Amino acid sequence: MKYVTAVWDDGGFSVDPGAYLAELPRLRADLPPGARSFATDPGHYDIAGATRCVKDLELAGVHFATDKSGGLVLDFAPNKFKHDSGLRITYSGVTHFSVDYEHSIDWMMVDAVLLDEILPDEDGGCTHEIALTDASILVRCRDLEAVWGGTS
């Protein structure tokens, strides 16, 4: 990620969205509407308290469109100690999707979100990078829609 810090550091995870949040006022105008709404939601990076913070959500499903429409859906289940509900992110116009597994943390049963970062893309779309406890996801798309609820 370019601005967000989300790394394994000395036996624990180090996460910090500060640099991204400092850049977000400059970046927001170049983000597509759905991505802008999700990235600028006041609870998105409220690690300490918000039930709408992405930190600690658990990756629950990846669904590809089979008709070459460029659709992709990622489902995240709530962390029972933090979230009231899960999150579904629906991507449109996907031109790239990758998951890179590190397989370095074998004691965790699921991949949980550390933090994410949404940046404008040169073609008017965006990239969404999600750091997980044992992997990272990268999506390049036209836009995305994030909806809280369900996937519990």
Rank of each mutant, 00 (worst) to 15 (best):
A112E: 10
L87W: 02
D100W: 00
L132A: 00
L87D: 02
D106P: 01
I118A: 04
L57A: 05
D121P: 01
D134E: 09
L138F: 12
L119A: 09
Y101L: 11
A50Y: 03
H63A: 11
V94A: 04
G43D: 12
Y91S: 02
K68Q: 12
H96A: 10
D106I: 08
I89W: 05
G43R: 11
L114I: 12
T51L: 10
A50K: 08
G61R: 07
N79W: 03
G124T: 05
S37R: 13
A50R: 06
L138A: 08
L59E: 00
P42Y: 10
R88T: 06
D46P: 03
L138M: 14
K68H: 13
H96C: 07
A39K: 01
G93P: 04
D121R: 14
F38Y: 09
R36I: 10
P42V: 13
D41H: 11
D46M: 11
I47C: 02
P120S: 09
E102K: 11
S98F: 06
S136H: 07
A60G: 13
D75P: 04
I89D: 06
T40I: 03
V54H: 04
E122H: 12
V73T: 15
V54N: 01
E129I: 04
I89C: 09
V113M: 07
W107H: 13
H128M: 08
G93F: 08
A135C: 06
S85W: 09
I137F: 08
D123Y: 07
D75H: 05
G70H: 10
K80I: 13
T66V: 13
F64P: 05
K82C: 07
L72W: 02
E102G: 08
E102I: 09
W107D: 11
F81I: 02
G70P: 10
V113S: 02
I89P: 03
T66G: 15
H128C: 04
S98N: 13
I118C: 07
G61H: 08
D46A: 05
L114D: 00
T66P: 06
A50V: 02
A48Y: 03
A112N: 08
R36W: 04
K82W: 06
F81D: 13
T51S: 07
G93C: 11
E58P: 01
F97D: 01
T66W: 11
A112I: 10
D56P: 06
D41F: 05
G71Y: 03
H83P: 00
R88N: 02
L57Q: 01
F81S: 14
D111R: 00
H44C: 11
A112Q: 06
T133F: 02
L132C: 03
I130F: 05
V110L: 15
C141M: 06
G43I: 12
D84C: 08
L59H: 04
G86V: 06
K55S: 14
D67K: 09
Y91F: 12
E129S: 10
G49W: 15
D75R: 05
V110A: 15
A112Y: 01
S104N: 12
